[in-house]
């Protein structure tokens, strides 16, 4: 028991030494420029890649990128904030239709249409958030499922969405470099958001709502915020999807789509950004890679999912601290979760 006594002083002996970075690196404009440089690098690499790889593989990469943006949104709602959503495809649908209507009917620039698609979806995220706040777990899942069905039925019957025939005549405006840049930006934004006061509040909602409330977290507010931000990502992804396929119909965004997106998050590891990205890559690429099996394709796909969930129930990267893992792999200094069993305190 070498505890308690050594910490009476007000000083902070255990505080981590500030990371050794040159001062100019800490300036906000410098970091913003570095981030822009990263995006440009991503653009250049994917532009080059686009020339080299066949169109079919390029298309798979492109859909992977779009799915990453969408599933990151779902990961925020379900993985980080702990609100099980079975209707994420509905936000994608709203974003897709809104963006398509913006470019086709309203002749708005594509970038603005994408943004508006995201914002409209976010608005619906808030609208869905309010009535479902009192629900949790299974009940919330059912409510989101109902919401997704309503959106699908409404899209099938509205004139503005061209009903069941589907919305066509959308220009193809999306290419791989654009999607890659947006996906990288989405990963960065999510990482920043999760590692902030807002992100911590969202995780506290997942962990224990009563303790979160006692700590001053307005759980209602952060649940709605998670739904809004998650829906925004889905909406932007939907807009990209619409301007890739140039044709969308209500059945593109059905229940199976929501389940597929949830599978990507769960397979990768709920609450983990890297896991979500990995899960999305695996589940987007797998059906294509398994195409040579023709009739047995979906069977193998399903069996792979089951086996993976048996051996990694927390997801591929669930419970893995990436930074820690990399540090350990490279043996750089001591890891964050080193077990210091001082004086037999370890139970």
């Amino acid at each position: 028991m070498s505890t308690v006594d050594n910490s009476v002083s007000g000083a902070v002996p255990g505080a981590p030494a500030p990371r050794r970075q040159p001062a100019w690196l800490k300036l906000w404009p410098v970091q913003a420029l570095l981030f822009l440089a990263l995006l440009v690098a991503v653009w250049a690499v994917t532009e080059a890649l686009n020339l080299v790889i066949p169109a079919y593989q390029g298309q798979i990469l492109l859909f992977t990128g779009i799915n990453v943006i969408i599933t990151l949104g779902l990961n925020l709602i379900t993985g980080v904030t702990g609100q099980l959503s079975l209707g994420h495809a509905a936000f994608m649908a709203i974003g897709a239709y809104a963006a398509a209507i913006c470019t086709v009917s309203l002749h708005l620039p594509f970038a603005l249409a994408l943004l508006l698609g995201g914002l409209v979806a976010a608005l619906f995220g808030v609208v869905l958030g309010f009535p479902t706040l009192r629900l949790s777990g299974d009940y919330l899942a059912i409510a989101t499922l109902g919401f997704a069905e309503i959106v699908r039925v409404v899209n099938t019957n509205l004139k503005i969405t061209n009903g069941a025939i589907g919305y066509y005549g959308i220009q193809k405006r999306v290419d791989l470099p654009l999607v890659a840049m947006l996906a990288v930006a989405a990963v960065a934004a999510m990482a920043w958001l999760e590692n902030s006061r807002n992100g911590r509040a969202m995780r506290s909602v997942r962990e224990d709502e009563i303790a979160a409330t006692a700590s001053g977290v307005n759980t209602t507010f952060y649940k709605i915020q998670a739904f809004a931000v998650g829906a925004f990502f889905a909406g932007v992804g939907g807009g990209l999807y619409a301007h890739t396929t140039t044709f969308i119909q209500p059945t593109d965004f059905g229940f199976l789509k929501s389940v597929e997106q949830l599978s990507m998050v769960v397979l990768g590891g709920m609450g983990s950004i890297a896991g979500t990205v990995l899960g999305t890559i695996v589940l987007t690429a797998a059906p294509e890679l398994l195409r040579f099996m023709s009739n047995y394709r979906m069977l193998v796909y399903g069996a792979t999912l089951i086996v993976l969930m048996i051996f990694r129930p927390g997801g591929l990267l669930g419970g893995v601290d990436l930074r820690d893992a990399v540090r350990r792999a490279l043996m750089l200094g001591r890891s964050r979760t080193v077990r210091t069993s001082v004086g037999g305190d370890g139970q």
């Binding site: 906000w28 970091q31 934004a189 920043w192 958001l193 902030s196 006061r197 807002n198 992100g199 911590r200 509040a201 995780r203 506290s204 962990e207 224990d208 009563i210 303790a211 979160a212 006692a214 700590s215 001053g216 977290v217 915020q225 931000v229 419970g319 964050r336």
Partner: peptide, 30 residues
Amino acid sequence: RLFSSLSLMENVLIGAHSRGRSGLAGAVFR
């Protein structure tokens, strides 16, 4: 009632929630 799958540091940082003011924009744009 701890936030059991979070680190000690994160637990205490969430305890400090009411001392903070920053919002979504601050978080995303750093």
